[in-house]
């Protein structure tokens, strides 16, 4: 086993971010519950935020942090509206499975 490197390369952060993003994308495809799918989108947003912060570290500025900040605000807005939509859908169709929500008209 090679000796531990003195510090973590920036690439490692980006790769973690890529793995998390891919997992989010995979989860979005394989899960059927609307809420879980929604959470997978949040996971992808989080993964992107990690990239933003990592690049921001590289450039020594706060621009990436601000993008992360805006992503958080948008995610909060999205969660509020999205969950309200999910609640309405559940009230009308009594299911949360994306496969069962397939008719245009009740």
């Amino acid at each position: 086993m090679p000796p531990a490197p003195p510090a973590v390369p920036l690439t490692a952060y980006l790769i973690v971010s890529a793995i998390l993003f891919s997992l989010g994308a995979i989860g979005f495809v394989i899960r059927k519950n609307v809420i879980t799918m929604f959470m997978c989108i949040e996971l992808m947003l989080n993964a992107i935020n990690l990239s933003f912060v990592a690049f921001s570290y590289k450039h020594g500025t706060v621009d990436g942090h601000l993008f992360t900040f805006f992503v958080m605000v948008v995610a909060a807005a999205e969660a509020a509206v999205g969950l309200a939509i999910i609640l309405t859908v559940y009230k009308n169709r009594n299911t949360l499975m994306a496969d069962d929500i397939d008719s245009l008209k009740l």
């Binding site: 920036l10 980006l14 793995i19």
Partner: peptide, 21 residues
């Protein structure tokens, strides 16, 4: 998918160019 993304990162950001402390 993970492999492609990792490969792209490795290609575009050369490793050990920036070290995080």
């Amino acid at each position: 998918l993970i492999a492609i993304l990792g490969f792209l990162i490795q290609r575009t950001v050369p490793p050990d160019s920036v070290v995080v402390r």
